[in-house]
């Protein structure tokens, strides 16, 4: 088969100019007389381009046509190469997905200090994954290092809470409490509230707030109450200045 006929075939196969170029390269490379590794290297680049350009079924149909029309086409070399390239592409894609997942887990859950000794955790997405576990660990770490008194957990961005997600939250709440902080849960949507009651997931161990504003108010009230109690203790011990805003207010 001479060169001009191959070029005609390439033109026929290529739906776009770019694709035609790839076919031309592939066909001319295939019948150039090289063998073994050299042939594979020659075919590799145009084939990879075609795999990216075309749908797998379309590429398959066109390759079949090529094999029928060009008797000298090195079919035996082509097949393992195609499989290899498909594997590589899939590997690349999986890696891209993994990168995105990593990015997501970093982006997904900020832990925000919204008030003195108050942390806000706006949870987003499913709570039943490793990502959620990692987030819980981070929260515990932050709660401990910042010596937070109150942790406000906002589940507005959580689409559904099933028993696994509920169990996860309960575990997280218990752990936060063990660090000496109170938990305020907020952002439960009405439909989720109903489902939780039906499921029997019990969040009574923590304070519930209607919305973030309410949560912040409750958190500040908790802090004030704690201060007041400490003042009272100080006063009980016979302190000289028990009054409002005295030196012992911030013991």
């Amino acid at each position: 088969m001479d060169k001009s006929r191959l070029e005609m075939l390439a033109e026929e196969l290529g739906a776009s100019e770019q694709e035609g170029k790839l076919w031309r390269k592939l066909l001319l490379g295939a019948v150039s007389g090289t063998t073994g590794n050299n042939l594979r290297e020659t075919l590799r680049e145009p084939l990879l381009g075609l795999l990216e350009e075309l749908e797998p079924t379309a590429l398959g149909a066109k390759l079949k046509l090529v094999i029928e029309r060009v008797p000298t086409f090195p079919t035996a070399e082509l097949f393992p190469l195609v499989l290899e390239l498909c594997g590589e592409l899939r590997h690349d894609r999986e890696q891209a997905v993994r990168k995105l997942e990593d990015m997501l887990s970093e982006l997904a859950t900020p832990i925000i200090r919204i008030w003195t000794e108050v942390l806000l955790v706006p949870l987003i997405g499913s709570l039943d994954t490793d990502r959620a576990q990692a987030m819980a660990e981070r929260l515990l770490e932050r709660t401990s290092t910042t010596r937070a008194r109150v942790v406000v957990v906002d589940v507005t961005g959580v689409p559904t809470i099933d028993t696994a997600a509920g169990g996860f939250l309960i575990e997280m709440f218990s752990a936060v409490k063990l660090l000496g902080a109170e938990v305020i849960l907020t952002g439960l949507k009405p439909e989720i509230a109903h489902t939780l009651v039906k499921l029997g997931v019990d969040f009574r161990m923590v304070a519930i707030a209607r919305d973030l504003e309410d949560a912040l108010r409750q958190a500040i009230a908790m802090l004030e109450e704690e201060k007041r109690q400490r003042r009272q203790i100080a006063w009980g011990r016979g302190s000289n200045f028990p009054g409002e805003g005295g030196e012992h207010g911030d013991i």
């Binding site: 099933d162 028993t163 696994a164 509920g166 169990g167 309960i170 499921l199 029997g200 997931v201």
Partner: peptide, 8 residues
């Protein structure tokens, strides 16, 4: 697990 899945 909380053990309330199926009954839930």
């Amino acid at each position: 697990s909380l053990g309330i899945g199926l009954s839930g």
